[in-house]
Write a protein that binds this DNA or RNA. Structure first.
Ligand SMILES: [Mn+2]
Ligand SMILES: [Mn+2]
Ligand SMILES: [Zn+2]
Ligand SMILES: [Zn+2]
Lengths: 148, 148
DNA sequence: CCAGAAAATGCAAGTCATTTGCATTTTCTT
DNA sequence: AAGAAAATGCAAATGACTTGCATTTTCTGG
């Protein structure tokens, strides 16, 4: 693990939401070429330190988002899926993957071996829904404030 | 519906697998600029004639794939999800979406409104698994032949 | 600690799916 | 058929991501 790799893994680990290569460039606090960011993300993903999924949204286009992976004591990976709000562009954690059984079913039905999967939801978050109800559609909000 | 739009919708409707913009360019039989292909796909998706999802694979990189949507009598859309073989790069139909309930659960739990979702599986198809077993990894195969 | 090998990084340039601006053509409305 | 609106073609741009290659950092064994 080089300095750059440790640093990016730290950023991913301490983030509560998936980050794009660009998000990481903004958050990094050591000098690093953007090419290195991409290469580092490939490295981290290949070595199961993180996983990723592609997401398209109106504001950011199609980008790949990365999040650190938690290894359980039995060695398996605890990967999460995400909801993305199409109004405020925040991610909401959907928790640990709940489609393992569904996938096992497909494997059996179709005699295939599933190696990876990508699932993401898009829609309107609770906060944006509320804003909609109250005052007729305001503009984008800032990030939600942590509760006092 | 213009000629171009009808034509592309025909291509999508008669295809058994999702197609990328490039796939469509290859299959089209009338003159049409590739920009028009993209614009037409946007149109068709916005009007619910088709839906799409982004997929990354080693051979084709990240591309968006489109498939015609089947409208049920009650007006709802019967959308499918897909498995993509990382060896022969074929799609396999996973049938009608089976995660509606899961999504409804998330909506309730998180008080969000889910507007769209993307799910795709990757792995090795039955045919490629078999090829692996028999002879130690052959190279890519052609498309599967229709059974006799 | 040190030399050499291997791996990682920076920089510049390239790739490639997709988008955009604008002039022209086609389609729609009256 | 005339004018307006929408669709299309062409050329150029965009933007995420990749690649080649020279340089620097890290690793490994002595
Ligand atoms: Mn999952
Ligand atoms: Mn679905
Ligand atoms: Zn929101
Ligand atoms: Zn296969």
């Amino acid at each position: 693990m080089t300095r750059a790799r440790k640093h990016i893994l730290d950023i991913l680990t301490s983030s509560e939401v998936p980050l794009s290569a660009q998000d990481i460039e903004q958050r990094k606090t050591i000098e690093m070429n953007s090419v290195t960011v991409y290469r580092t993300l490939h490295y981290l993903e290949a070595h199961e330190y993180c996983d990723s999924f592609p997401l398209t949204c109106s504001e950011h286009g199609t980008e790949r988002y990365y999040s650190a992976v938690h290894h359980r004591t039995d060695g398996t990976c605890d990967h999460h899926h995400w909801f993305h709000c199409i109004e405020c562009h925040q991610f909401i954690d959907l928790g640990t993957c709940r489609i393992d059984e569904l996938i096992a079913g497909y494997e059996k039905e179709l005699s295939v071996s599933v190696v990876g999967h990508s699932l993401s939801l898009t829609g309107v978050c609770a906060r944006c829904l509320q804003t909609r109800d109250h005052s007729g559609n305001r503009e984008h909000q800032g990030p939600p404030q942590a509760e006092g």
